[in-house]
Structure formats: C-alpha cells, structure tokens
Design a binder for these strands. Structure first.
Length: 487
RNA sequence: GUGGCCAUAGCUUAGCGGUCUAAAGCACUGCUCUGUGGCAGCAGGGAUCGAGGGUUCAAAUCCCUCUGGCCACCCCA
C-alpha cells in the first residue's frame, strides 16, 4: 500500500529520455517509409484481387468488447491491454487486435443484411502492453482480412492463400502452419481428454502449465519447457476428437491447399491465444525462422464470435492478420529491394527573373499531372540545386537562367548521363513527355538516336564552365567517362 | 512478471584512472567552383561521455542507485 503511494508521488526525472518515444513505441522515419508503403501497396492489391473492402474502426473501444470477444482468460485481456477510465467514467482500451472491432461494426451497422459473406480489409495500429523485444512493440501495425457470414471451407483456404500471397508478393518465403481446433462441442471433449491425460503427469509440468490446466488446457500444448514438450508427444490429438462436420470441413480446407500447391504443415500444436477461434487456425512462419518465433501473421475461423458480441444469429466467419512490423523487418533482413520512386523533373533556376519564371513553370508542370516534380527555390546556387536534385535521384532537371529567360528557351539536363539540350520554352512539356517515355521504356536513353543532336550541349561539369558544342555524342560520353576515371 | 547484456556527436564506433580542452568514419554546413550534381581536397558546426551519488590529488574510465535501450523466457503480429 505504502509503496503505491510513493510510486504515485515520485516525479519523473527531467532527462532527455523523458521527451522521447513511450516505451515500446517508435517513429517510422521518412527514410524507412518506402518499406511500409510497399507493404500497404501489396495489402491493398490483394484486397482488391479478392474483393475485400476497406474498413476503418476506431482505435479506442470499450474494454468490454475485448473482454467478451477475445476472452477474459487470455493473456491479451489479462495483462496486455492499454486500458483506462476516461473523464466520463467509461472504461476504454486501445484496441489490442482487429477482429473484434470489425465484428462489432458488422453487428452495429446491421451488415447481416448485406450479401454474405461481408468481406473486410483493414490496416492500422494495435496496442499491447508487453515487454518489447525484437519484432515486438507495444504499438504495432497489422493489415488483415475478415469474411463474415459464410462457413464454406473454400473461404478458409482462400484467406490462407491471401496471407501467403501477400508475403510472396513482397518476396518473403513462408510456410503455413495449419490446424483445426474444432467447434465448441468437440473442443470441450478434447479439453476433457487433455486434462485427464495431463492430470496423471502433473508433477512433471512446469508451474505455468499447472496453472493453465484448470483455465485454458489447450495452451498446455504450446509450452516450450523441455518437460512439457516431451509430455505432449503422447498427448491426445485434437484431430482425433473432431466431430464429423468439423473433420469434414478441415479435410476440405486441406484439399484446397493441396490443390493450390501451397507450402503448409499440419501442426497440431498451434493453438492461438485468442478464445474466439473455432475450426481452422493457421500461422505464417518465415521459412528460416525458429519454430513459431515471430510469426509473420495468423488467423482462423471464429464461428462463435458474432453471437458472443451480441449478433442476433449464429454467424460463421473467418479472418487473418499480418504483422507489418515483422514483415518490414524481414524485408530488411533479406535485403529485399523496394522500387524507389524517382522524381521525373527538378526545376532549377538561376537569377531573380529566372526564379520567377521557374516558379510559374513549376506550377504548370505540377498541374499538368503527368510528371512528378520537385524544386529548391530557396536555394540560389545552381550547384546546390543540382546537388539536391542528385540526392533526390531525379530523372531530369530543367535549368532556367538569365540567358534562357532572354532566349525563351530552357535547358533540359538528363541526370544520368549529364547530357544537356536547349529546348524551346513552349515545347518543354512535350519534350519532357517524350524523354520520360524513353526513360521508362527501359534504361538509359540512347543518345546517338536522338534527332535533335545539333541542339545538344555537353557540359563537363566541374572541369569547365565553358560551353562546348559537340558533334559526336559517342565520343563525348567516352571523354566524360575518362574524366571521371581520372578523378 | 523473471533473467542476461548494454548506454560516448544525428548514425557506427575508439578511448577503459592522469597525455581528454573526449577521437575517427559516415552524415550535415561552407569553401576550392558567384551557370552545372555524382569524384576529390580543405575548413567548420555538433557530445554537460544516459541521470544522480560515491571512491580518488585526479573519473568517460572504478563502485552504488536510478532511468532508458536491446535480447531471451512467457505470449504473440
């Protein structure tokens, strides 16, 4: 009691750390965004391919939703929820998972009147108050799919496929772990058998498992203690306890997986930590990961959940969620290349009059809509501007200076080869489009085949500021390369 | 909740009782080069050495406490 009071009074020390991220939460900086964007892109594509529609649910929900939905005996609800009582006295929680919220929305908005199944796609942050470690954060991100209102095993298989496809499209090899934990009825039978089996060996169990036995015997199976592990070898198998309907359903799911040629393993020991699952359950493990550590995603069927959360009728449903943080980590670990978006055109300017003209030109290009554009009008030095353009890895730079303003021209610089040409101000959009088409067609523009070669001007950059007109582009390139080498 | 490891510029690290007014590489800023990026050279800014206390003539360095981080268990994404 006294300790508690002391704890409350204790003022945090004023250190640099106090103003950093909250434990277990992190910033995703601009330089890392490309991975996340790629993951979102793939998730979105998969959702379209299989007709899952986007839904966004609030991050805050009433605690009751998860206590009832996920189960009061689960780790998530027992000790991992970020919960608090708000000013109005409501008990709220930062959502620890996505499915319960989606089901809540389905019920609340009467979506049982839509064509079934209703198929949802979501993506966003979840919160669990666990001790952070590699691949585990207190705020983490998932994307997921839920199909509510249908019990056909084809749906289970297709969802399993969707998760696998997501990983595969991102270049991550994974193996699917599948199991069935039956319906409420056959699971009860199985639990009884499990308890009966373990009771005779209870002396050999670890403390934790002894505890689990009375409350959630299924979880005896995924204990990693030596003793408990060897015991499970001879333990009753869930598959032997499935009733005909459940067994039949599961066999069909497996049949589809075979037909789709998916790499899966029947794993009778995956159990999942949420109470709402029935029948099919599955996880995705990276091909090179140690058993079950940092699963990349998982899901299963939850035929009972809709009723539990107040739905009018028994409504079958199935879903999955993928861990985006872990997927990103895996992509980096595997050095998976993420195509970086290159900006098409950078507008550089030199001198006051030119800057004005450049700003207008920039707006025109931007509104045109067929290019991605960038600039650095806050810089006066051309050198600086080209440096910035280079760091942005832009494809082409337009240069407007005194001379160009006078002539009504503009200089177009190909940032890869460094070749420049003078172009009529009014033709610039058309010329740009032409160059970009060539660029996008593949690789470097072949300079020798360019018709307007008389207009070409080659600059040897830092060597000389003198403008030389060159006739033979090929020779010129060689010269540049030589210079580069010498340097 | 339990255990192990760690904490020095934005990042990666060196220094492990006095030679530290804390060093290097990368990054950043400027100059060489006021009309030309990618290369190079030079210069510069940036660190109360996580915080507090102690030992000592002397602490980034040794000891204690706290805080934070990473990793593992548990569980999962």
């Amino acid at each position: 009691m006294e300790k508690k009071v002391v704890k409350e009074i204790k003022k945090p020390k004023k250190t640099k750390r106090d103003l950093s991220t909250v434990t277990g939460m992190r910033d995703i900086l601009p330089q890392d965004q490309k991975y996340w964007e790629r993951v979102r892109e793939v998730a979105k594509q998969i959702s379209k391919d299989y007709d899952y529609e986007r839904i966004d649910t609030p991050i805050l929900e009433y605690s009751e939703l998860f206590v009832r939905g996920v189960g009061s005996q689960t780790d998530i609800v027992e000790k991992e929820m970020f919960s608090f009582v708000d000013q109005g006295g409501d008990s709220l929680v930062l959502r620890p998972e996505g499915t319960a919220s989606v089901v809540r929305a389905y019920i609340q908005h009467g979506l049982l009147n839509h064509t079934q199944p209703v198929k949802f796609f979501y993506e966003g942050p979840l919160f669990r108050h666990e001790k952070p470690q590699s691949g585990r954060y207190r705020q983490f991100f998932q994307f997921g799919f839920e199909a509510i209102g249908e019990d056909n095993p084809a749906l289970d298989a297709q969802l399993i496929l969707m998760g696998w496809n997501s990983l595969n499209d991102l270049g991550i090899e994974s193996v699917i772990q599948v199991n069935s934990i039956g319906c409420k009825e056959c699971r009860e039978e199985y639990k009884k058998a499990l308890v009966k089996y373990y009771k005779t060996k209870s002396k050999l169990l670890c403390e934790n498992c002894k505890n689990k036995m009375g409350r959630n015997p299924l979880r005896l199976l995924d204990c990693k203690e030596e003793g408990c592990r060897s015991l499970r070898e001879d333990s009753p198998q869930i598959l032997d306890y499935l009733d005909d309907a459940c067994k039949n359903h599961f066999m069909k799911v497996i049949g589809y997986l075979d037909e789709l040629d998916l790499p899966y393993v029947l794993n009778p020991y995956i159990v999942r930590g949420l109470d709402y699952y029935t029948r099919t359950i599955f996880e995705y493990w990276a091909i090179d990961d140690v058993e079950g550590k940092n699963a990349l995603g998982g899901g299963g069927r939850y035929d009972g959940l809709i009723k539990i959360l107040g739905g009018r009728e028994e409504t079958p449903a199935c879903g999955l969620a993928m861990g985006m943080d872990r997927i990103v980590a895996k992509m980096r670990e595997k050095n998976i290349e993420v195509p970086e978006e290159r900006i098409d055109v950078f507008v550089a300017q030199l001198g006051d009059a030119a800057k004005k003209k450049a700003m207008v030109m920039y707006e025109n290009l931007r509104k045109n809509g067929s290019f991605t554009v960038s600039q650095a009008f806050h810089k006066d030095s051309l050198k600086k501007q080209l440096e910035i353009a280079n760091k942005m890895r832009v494809k082409f730079t337009l240069i407007i200076g005194q001379k160009e303003v006078g002539d009504g021209t503009i200089m177009l610089r190909d940032m890869q080869g460094g070749v420049q040409e003078v172009i009529d101000f009014n033709k610039i959009e058309r010329e740009l489009k032409k160059r970009l088409e060539k660029y996008n067609e593949g690789a470097v523009i072949d300079l020798t085949q360019n018709e307007e070669s008389e207009n070409k001007i080659e600059m040897s950059g830092n060597i000389s500021s003198e403008i030389e007109s060159l006739e033979d582009q090929k020779e010129d390139i060689e010269e540049i390369e030589k210079l580069d080498l010498e340097k």
